[in-house]
Nucleic acid binder design. Structure first.
Length: 833
RNA sequence: GCCGAGGUGACGGAAUUGGUAGACGUACGAGACUUAAAAUCUCGAGACCGUAAGGUCGUGUGGGUUCGAUUCCCACCCUCGGCACCA
């Protein structure tokens, strides 16, 4: 018998599978389809680290199981290759990002292929490929033509010394990551996609998909649908504390119009547009200006977060009037109010809102209770005890509305002051511009006469030109702006002089529709116009076959951006009649990150990255696969530990040995004539394992599936003889986890056909229930003994058997038996006193 | 701060979703094999008291519900993910 030589085996079978095109999906097949999807990787220069393949292996196990269950499986992969790291590398080295991408992709592909993930490589796509981004650009123009892409002034991070725009990630504590200099937020015209138009459907349609509740909850909270009222407050000029003429109106959004009588001040965001109109009336304008400038420096998290005291400046010389009771109330600006949520202005009710309550401390602002808290345990807030009461209840101190319930008062008070009941969303429109090189050029042309003109379809793709310098320009424009020959074009409409848009797209663009691209990958390269191709029956037939994605696994960190963006993109395409389903992904799950040994995130800068190359070389791909699935719950983050890996390798070596033991004993012949009898407990264990592995895979509980395979193998080793058919069943269950090992042993046992094309084993219910059960005997909830018996014994029998146990009896001495609680087939608890 | 997830032996984790806490694996200890080491195989092991039989305690902390709580409820502490230009 020769030993388990992973190098020989793995190379051999990878070649065979590739030659037989075993994992390529068929666009037309009588089998039921299954579309498995993982988030396609960003091919970074550091190469694959051991964290990357975790989700690929997990979905691979599911895909392999589905094939064995008779499905036509599509499990594709590609490259999400636009992005900052490659661009920054290009800025540093001057090497073209396309070359860097090519190099990185090649390395990633080699590394992924050595793990034998059953990807359909014939459908490989790359977002940076002009034949791919031609479609991305075409879809952008569709958004533009439908009025969902527009330009708007938005703040960007600006480094004052580098004089370039920065990504949020490049700003650390308000300073530039590159030079350490100060940054500020500066307004710039940006392309936007109107995702908020789809906010309601993105929220509501979560009901139709199978996502874990934590993902639905995060998306719903991100969309932040809330029902409330818009209420107008008049602003008056005040001279020497005397009310003069009305100068403006400010509309606030509130979810709690029932607390309107408790408003003690108004807060505007420091950027609120009304400030410009009234600044001549503000007596402390200088102080206000200073505060506005400080707010510019802060990030949103700094503004809304932190335990620090909430800051603000009162606008002196003006006051607002509470429309409910005509009270004169002060107006403040404060950075805890954001300009792009609601109306950028709030009515503050410190008695019933946590942030408002925090804000008044030290500022001498009053608090008026308008919800009756005396009926609760809390006690009245005015006594200074505890937090503000943010719940609903009966109104007090609210004029004619006192005594009314919050819910009714919301409507009535809004009506009373002439307000409007509205629905708002926290979700903001999608900033779609980047002033960067390595992204899809936004395909529009700016003409002095015709305005913004889309690039005609025949001129797509708008390819990225060669540039010398990849860094953004010091005017904040993309490096593309410096290429005069590329920028200056004729207007497609009037043929007059015009300039190309120089912004590029974020890399969420290409990843918003890549799962569609896999279905039609061969069509992407066609020279036919997309507007003819996409709606054609040829493509629609494929999309109808494959969509929606049946199971999409990805990182929890993509829940609110990528996952939401692509759902939006898909719904838009659906509205255009281009895709057949309302939702792109029928089911979504997520995996936990693999962290470095210390529990930190793996990163090049920390120098704690574990490369799979070395692991595969010394332990083999199957060992790595088994370890990554065994190391802990798939959905949770977990630290890498090379020491533990040996257990997975040992497991596979023992599988190998048992295989050879069986073969040497000559079971092969016996199996053909008749199945050998096996011990009943082993048969029961086998069927239990079939059930457990099958169910665990569906629940992503790969760790316990492997654990049960290990338990079965341990039993095989203890048993004097194990039948070939039993062992073969074990191999089939192992095949999705360790495809090379399973295939090699399978072939050694005399099979010609691949084990991965075998049917998935089924278990017999009878074999499971034939086994005896252990009944736990407790006295007052403490375990005092146990006994074995057959399944299905009556409560009386079990109770009597328990009371007869000597280990139980001794605890009953001098006590009175009050109750005997029996849990069928499991436990008896004797209650005594 | 807000939203989401989590906290169990030396370590990764398991526990049929309210019913024997610690499966499986790593590391560790003892033994077998070996001239020896490695590898492999067998056995042991939550903590404390006890020679043992056995007992007490034990799932981040404090309280509650229950015959019975890692699991349910309340309060608190800590760790991780996201917060819109990293992907």
């Amino acid at each position: 018998m020769h030993g388990y030589d992973h190098k020989r085996i793995e190379k051999k079978w990878q070649k065979v599978w590739q030659q037989q095109r075993q994992y390529e999906a068929k666009d037309a097949s009588p089998k039921k389809k299954f579309y498995a999807l993982i988030e396609f990787p960003y091919p970074s220069g550091e190469g694959l680290h051991v964290g990357h393949p975790r989700p690929y292996i997990g979905m691979d196990i599911i895909a392999r199981k589905r094939r064995m269950e008779g499905y036509n499986v599509l499990y594709p992969i590609g490259w999400d290759a636009f992005g900052l790291p490659t661009e920054n590398y290009a800025v540093k080295t001057g090497i073209h990002p396309a070359l860097v991408t090519k190099r990185n992709t090649k390395n990633f592909k080699r590394q992924i292929q050595m793990l034998a993930i059953s990807f359909d490589w014939s459908r490989e796509i790359n977002t940076t490929d002009p034949s791919y981004y031609k479609w991305t650009q075409w879809m952008f123009l569709l958004f533009f033509k439908k009025g969902l892409a527009y330009k708007k002034k938005m703040p960007i991070n600006w480094c004052l010394s580098c004089r370039i725009g920065l990504a949020n990630e490049e700003v650390v504590d308000g300073t530039c990551e590159r030079c350490g200099g100060e940054t500020e937020r500066r307004e710039k015209e940006q392309w936007m996609l109107a995702i908020t138009k789809y906010a309601d459907r993105l929220d509501k349609d979560l009901d139709m998909v199978d996502y874990p509740s934590r993902i639905k909850a995060q998306q719903r909270n991100w969309i932040g649908k809330s029902n409330g009222s818009l209420i107008k407050f008049s602003i008056f000029n005040f001279q020497f504390s005397k009310k003069e003429e009305k100068i403006e109106e400010v509309e606030v959004f509130t979810t709690r119009p029932d607390t309107l009588f408790g408003v003690t001040y108004l807060v505007l965001s420091p950027e609120h547009p009304v400030l410009k109109n009234i600044e001549s009336r503000i007596s402390n304008l200088e102080e206000v200006r200073k505060y506005q400038n400080e707010a510019k420096r802060k990030t949103e998290i700094e503004r809304t977060g932190g335990e620090k005291e909430k800051t603000g400046v009162e606008l002196k010389g003006i006051k607002a009037i509470n429309p409910a009771n005509q009270d004169e109330i002060p107006i403040w600006i404060a950075d805890y109010v954001l300009s792009d949520y609601g109306t950028g202005a709030i009515m503050a009710v410190p008695a019933h809102d946590v942030r408002d309550f925090q804000f008044i401390s030290g500022k001498g602002l009053p608090l008026i209770e308008v919800i009756d808290t005396t009926t609760f345990k809390l006690g009245p807030i005015s006594t200074g005890k505890g937090w503000p009461y943010t719940g609903t209840g009966k109104l007090i101190n609210s004029g004619e509305f006192s005594g009314m319930d919050s819910e009714e008062a919301k409507k009535k008070i809004t009506e009373f002051v002439g307000g409007k009941i509205v629905t708002t969303y926290k979700l903001r429109d999608w900033v779609f511009s980047r002033q960067r090189y390595w992204g899809e050029p936004i395909p529009v042309i700016h003409c002095e006469r015709c305005g913004t003109v889309p690039v005609p379809e025949k001129d797509l793709p708008v390819k990225l030109p060669e540039v010398k310098n990849y860094a953004p320009t010091d005017t904040g424009e993309s490096p593309l702006a410096a290429i005069e020959s590329w920028v200056n074009v004729k207007c497609p409409k009037c043929k007059g002089p015009a300039r190309r848009e120089t912004d590029t797209m974020p890399n969420w663009a290409g990843s918003s529709w890549y799962y569609i691209a896999y279905c039609i990958s061969e069509n992407l390269k066609s020279q036919l116009p997309i507007s003819k191709q996409f709606p054609s029956s040829k493509i629609q037939k494929k999309l109808k076959h494959w969509l929606p994605v049946d199971w999409y696994n990805g990182g929890m960190e993509h829940t609110t951006l990528h996952l939401l963006y692509s759902r939006f993109w898909h719904k838009f395409l659906y509205d255009c009649g281009l895709v057949p389903t309302l939702e792109p992904y029928a089911k979504r799950t997520s995996h936990g990150l693999i962290l470095a040994e210390g529990g930190e995130k793996m990163s090049k800068s920390k120098g704690n990255v574990v490369n799979p190359d070395a692991v595969v070389k010394s332990y083999g791909a199957d060992s790595l696969r088994v370890y990554e699935m065994f190391m802990g719950p798939f959905e949770q983050a977990i630290s890498w530990n090379t020491d533990s890996l040996i257990g997975s390798r040992r497991f596979l070596e023992r599988v190998w040995k048992v295989g050879f033991r069986i073969k040497d004993l000559g079971f092969k012949k016996k199996e053909i004539s008749s199945p050998e009898p096996q011990s009943a407990p082993l048969t029961a264990l086998l069927h239990h394992t079939i059930k457990k592995v099958g169910e665990d895979i569906e629940l992503l509980k790969f760790n316990t599936a492997l654990s049960s395979l290990m338990i079965l193998l341990n039993a095989f080793e203890r048993e004097a003889s194990v039948s070939l058919s039993m062992y073969k069943t074990f191999l089939k269950l192992l095949a999705p986890f360790a495809p090379h090992m399973a295939e090699e042993v399978w072939a050694n046992l005399g099979s010609r056909k691949s084990i991965h094309l075998e049917p998935w084993p089924a278990y017999e219910e009878k074999a499971l229930t034939d086994t005896p059960v252990t009944i736990i005997a407790q006295v007052n909830g403490k375990t005092r003994g146990s006994f074995e018996t057959s399944r299905g014994r009556s409560k009386e029998e079990l109770g009597a058997a328990t009371l007869a146990l000597p280990s139980v009896k001794k605890w009953l001495d001098g006590k009175e038996v009050r109750d005997v609680i029996v849990v069928q087939d499991r436990l008896v608890n004797v209650v005594v006193s």
